[in-house]
Design a protein around this nucleic acid. Sequence first.
DNA 1: GATTTATTGTTCAAAAAATCACAATAACTA
DNA 2: TAGTTATTGTGATTTTTTGAACAATAAATC
Lengths: 215, 215
Amino acid sequence: MVNKKCIIRLLRYKNALHRLNSLGFVRVFSDNLADAVGVTASQVRKDFSLFGICGNKRGGYQIETLLEKLNHILGKNEQQKVVIVGGGNIGAALMKYKGFEKEGVKIAACFDIDPAKYNHREGDIPVLPLEQLKDFVRQHHIRIGVIAVPDIAAQQVLDFMLAAGIKGILNFAPIRLRAASDCVINNVNLVLELETVIYFIINGTESSINNRHIG
Amino acid sequence: MVNKKCIIRLLRYKNALHRLNSLGFVRVFSDNLADAVGVTASQVRKDFSLFGICGNKRGGYQIETLLEKLNHILGKNEQQKVVIVGGGNIGAALMKYKGFEKEGVKIAACFDIDPAKYNHREGDIPVLPLEQLKDFVRQHHIRIGVIAVPDIAAQQVLDFMLAAGIKGILNFAPIRLRAASDCVINNVNLVLELETVIYFIINGTESSINNRHIG
DNA sequence: GATTTATTGTTCAAAAAATCACAATAACTA
DNA sequence: TAGTTATTGTGATTTTTTGAACAATAAATC
Ligand SMILES: NC(=O)c1ccc[n+]([C@@H]2O[C@H](COP(=O)([O-])OP(=O)(O)OC[C@H]3O[C@@H](n4cnc5c(N)ncnc54)[C@H](O)[C@@H]3O)[C@@H](O)[C@H]2O)c1
Ligand SMILES: NC(=O)c1ccc[n+]([C@@H]2O[C@H](COP(=O)([O-])OP(=O)(O)OC[C@H]3O[C@@H](n4cnc5c(N)ncnc54)[C@H](O)[C@@H]3O)[C@@H](O)[C@H]2O)c1
């Protein structure tokens, strides 16, 4: 019922509403949102209905209250702190990115085994030895972590993170992780994402793909 | 019929087979693959059946021939060349990553508007002025491109890439792109991926999530 | 070579997701 | 204020996706 796809749609609605809000709009209709996110208006209303969000018949939805409700549902009222393990290419890109804070996500620290990566510069996100992960996570009550280490190290790192108390994982390593304890793992496989595009370009031309968003 | 999810599964089977192959295995059963990829054995056989792939009853599948068939279906027999537009955090991370070549994906060049990013060093992937995109794409017959520019620039960059002849896009900018001509767009929204994990950690604890891969 | 066994390929059923359709009704209009 | 209109909220329907079941059968065994 509350599956991943549905949550992702809610998050997208929220983003679209942010934009509309900052453009000065006050209310919105289901089909505006549908357009902005790329779904049908029915889908928007069904999703809202599922979470008990209601608007005004004929009047649409008040953007401000809608945002409040979505933020409440999505737990976006307080900033969420996150750690990264692996300060290489991907880890560094994530640390340098300013877009997380705007969405209420704070990258609290990064952990690595390579001393060359350690960094305590004021203002930067600290990059610390992996051994400090457990203490850090406990001290800051962190439940979410990103895995950005090479695939061969990923399983071991996962186990270590779970032992430290991490419950939710965003995993960039292209392997299927095994977890004993209860946790949530979301995998991002960038090679796969690119290969998917390649497939549809090679094999999709004859089947008249017109400007299709495949994800 | 041949939807994105199915293609992604095929790509995952292919990856799993690669691993098994390099471990010295010669044949594989549907439930091995299912395990490796996180689906049911029925699903594996159904997917293969859909593409006319068949193994031997009681004998499973010959890994080598299976890989050949998958590579043929997925168009992975020749190396695919790709360009990146935007040599910032994400663009640079992608360029430094060695994992694409192994999967037959070659990042041919990157394009940027910031002269500080230009790079002609022998051995490195070249970073060139955006104006050179069209010629480069034509000369190298490139059909796939990655968008790794700030969201405000993304639509304009897309239009430029399509005009240059690019047909397939992997887009990292967190906006919904509009495309007039026929093309395929695959969106990767990393903030969303992280927010999804956060949602399931905040709201999922009571509903007894056990070690669930949500993507 | 006959018998047993394990695994495929496919059909059918179930579950999940998306879409349709429309009554209910709040907001506009005159 | 009465009438009209546009939009919601949701039950019904369709489509898509997944899983279970099992006959067919190739490999293994004896
Ligand atoms: N960079 C990309 O564009 C890209 C693309 C697709 C997939 N990936 C995947 O993302 C992951 C990270 O890729 P990357 O390019 O950033 O790799 P990288 O090699 O640049 O960085 C990995 C970092 O992890 C650290 N590390 C290694 N073992 C560790 C351990 N046991 N504990 C803590 N830290 C450890 C290393 O010191 C290094 O800093 C990999 O699994 C890769 O396959 C990356
Ligand atoms: N870095 C991350 O971890 C991260 C996370 C989530 C989303 N994203 C998204 O990915 C995209 C890239 O992020 P980033 O952190 O790499 O950004 P960045 O600012 O580091 O890099 C952007 C690059 O694009 C170039 N550029 C700007 N306008 C251009 C144009 N019109 N044509 C060509 N090049 C242009 C800039 O010169 C710069 O080199 C953004 O849309 C961002 O929202 C990034």
